[in-house]
Nucleic acid binder design. Structure first.
Lengths: 215, 215
DNA sequence: CAGAACACTGAACAGTGTTCACTGTTATGA
DNA sequence: TCATAACAGTGAACACTGTTCAGTGTTCTG
């Protein structure tokens, strides 16, 4: 066995072990919460020393990031799949996307929390924002191809994202809050955000002058 | 000096030192971020040993909590003050309250983040939710005294809170995200949430099964 | 078959929150 | 006045944490 044959095989095993580490890490923080995931515990779980992990991930934060990336990539795919689905209307599709987002967050609380706990990585477009871009597509489909569609789509997407993020993170972090009904609040948030930003939009400038300026 | 004279004086000094500790803690995490606030650093700052802090706070988490309580109490007061202010309309007051909430969060990022990072305390109504109650009052003022006002107010308040929390926490955690314009997104979020939950409200289609419900 | 490349480890470093035996000091009741 | 109890504070230690690094085998390569 010579030359590149061996090196390729090594590369392959490297990737396998890396995946095994990710898997074990996910298993631990799904079981015990991500707060209590330490490098030594993870190492013990897979039968290596703690130092070994650093041969595959440069830091704990990078390891976490790779987990989150993996997860958000799947969320993004789900959202993208929605765009092609024959549904009643673009608005209905967008709302469906919103419900998907919230539900996904609630089903992957660790991933979701870590994603918004970690400082945004040093550079490059990353999966969290890819999910945002997918959402944006759903929004654009709702807007008429009129004048400043891009700018309007941007504001609309960002404000909808904010609303979705708000209810998602609250449901995760305050599960025992006396929610009126989780479902009804989710729906109210989504309907308001979407209707307000996309269907009856454009007209702005209520809250006008009077006295106090906001800001 | 006898009996209760001395014990009262001691109590007083206790409270003073406790306040000094809180102050120092706040100073540190405003300067260096709350991630890098350690008990030993705080102790050094005030010229005591780390163990001394535990004579006044049972744990780091409790110390943090007392900081957050202090802050949210002030937010709640601000919001409460708004209710009496003569403004255009209840809806306008509510929106003003929303802007206050968001702006306050952005100006006290540490307090805000900690509040939603810490697990909700063991028992009792606490200041974070007191701010919520104040918000609720602003919402109630917007609703007609019709049939199920309480339930509607609850759903409305919770969904508005979710939206406010969403934009606030995103602005704090992703300050370098390419926001269309922070101001415009804030406004869009607030307008959508309030209008959707309070002005044109009531009938909400159950978003029924699978595809149905055109709207 | 020598030597480089690789995979991995134990021990250590600097730091964390927290506890505890041990000090002084201060107020108390007899 | 004086022993005693209550209080305030400390240094050292415990059990962790993430991370680094010298050293050790193993595996591939020219």
């Amino acid at each position: 066995m010579h030359t590149s044959r061996a090196v390729a095989r090594r590369q392959e095993q490297r990737e396998e072990l890396k995946a095994e580490m990710r898997e074990a890490a996910r298993a631990i923080f799904v079981r015990d919460g991500f707060q209590s995931l330490s490098m030594r515990k993870l190492a013990a779980e897979i039968g290596y020393s703690a130092a070994a992990i650093y041969l595959y991930f440069p830091s704990k934060e990078h390891l976490f990031h790779s987990l989150v990336e993996e997860s958000f990539s799947r969320l993004s795919d789900s959202l993208a799949g929605l765009a092609d689905e024959p549904s009643t209307s673009p608005v209905e599709r967008l709302k469906r996307g919103g419900r998907l987002y919230v539900r996904w967050g609630c089903m992957h609380p660790n991933d979701y929390q870590i994603a918004f706990l970690l400082p945004v990585p040093l550079s490059g477009p990353y999966k969290t924002h890819q999910a945002f871009q997918t959402l944006r597509l759903l929004v654009v489909a709702c807007l008429p191809a009129a004048g400043a569609r891009d700018k309007r789509a941007e504001t609309a997407t960002q404000s909808i994202w904010a609303a979705l993020h708000g209810i998602t993170s609250l449901l995760i972090q305050r599960p025992s809050f006396p929610w009126r009904t989780k479902e009804s609040v989710i729906q109210q948030v989504i309907d308001s955000a979407v209707d307000g930003a996309v269907t009856r939009s454009s007209r702005r400038g209520t809250h006008g002058g009077r006295n106090g300026r906001a800001r």
